[in-house]
Amino acid sequence: MSSMSQEILAFLFSTSGWVLVSSTLPMEYWEVSSNDGSVITTATFYSNLWKTCVIDSTGVSNCKDFPSLLALNGYIQACRGLMIAAVCLGFFGSIFALVGMKCTKLGGTDKNKASIACFAGVIFLLSGLCSLSSCSLYAHRITTEFFDPLFYDQKYELGAALFIGWAGSILCILGGSVLCFSITGSFTKSHSRANYIYKGAVSQSHISSRPRGQAQSVNQRPPPDCSNSSRIQHFDKNVYV
Rank of each mutant, 00 (worst) to 15 (best):
S38T: 07
W30P: 02
I40R: 07
K51A: 10
L25N: 03
N48H: 01
W30Y: 08
G37H: 07
P26C: 10
N35R: 09
W30D: 02
K51H: 10
W50L: 12
T44S: 11
Y29L: 09
N48P: 03
S38Y: 11
W50C: 00
W50T: 11
S22V: 08
M27Q: 14
V32W: 01
T42F: 14
V39S: 14
D36C: 09
L49K: 01
T42Y: 13
W30A: 07
T24L: 07
Y46A: 06
L25Y: 06
I40Y: 10
L25I: 12
S34F: 07
D36V: 15
N48T: 04
W50E: 10
P26K: 05
V39C: 03
T42K: 12
I40P: 00
S22P: 01
A43H: 14
F45G: 02
K51T: 05
N35M: 06
L25K: 01
E31L: 06
M27T: 10
T44L: 14
P26Q: 07
T41Y: 00
I40T: 10
F45C: 01
T42G: 15
S33Q: 09
S38D: 05
S23N: 04
A43L: 09
I40K: 07
N48Y: 01
T41S: 10
Y29W: 07
S22Y: 04
V32D: 00
A43D: 13
Y46S: 06
L25S: 03
F45S: 10
G37D: 05
W50I: 10
S38M: 07
T24C: 15
P26L: 12
S34T: 15
N35E: 09
N48A: 05
S22I: 02
A43G: 06
S23H: 02
I40V: 15
T42N: 13
V32R: 02
E28S: 15
T24P: 06
Y46Q: 04
W50H: 10
T44K: 10
Y29N: 04
S22K: 05
E31S: 13
L25Q: 01
W50D: 08
T41A: 10
P26V: 11
N48Q: 04
G37V: 05
T41R: 10
L25T: 02
Y46P: 03
N35T: 12
S38C: 08
G37P: 06
E31T: 06
M27E: 13
F45L: 11
A43T: 14
E31K: 12
V32E: 00
S38G: 00
Y46D: 02
A43R: 14
W30K: 03
T44G: 05
L49C: 04
W50K: 08
Y46L: 08
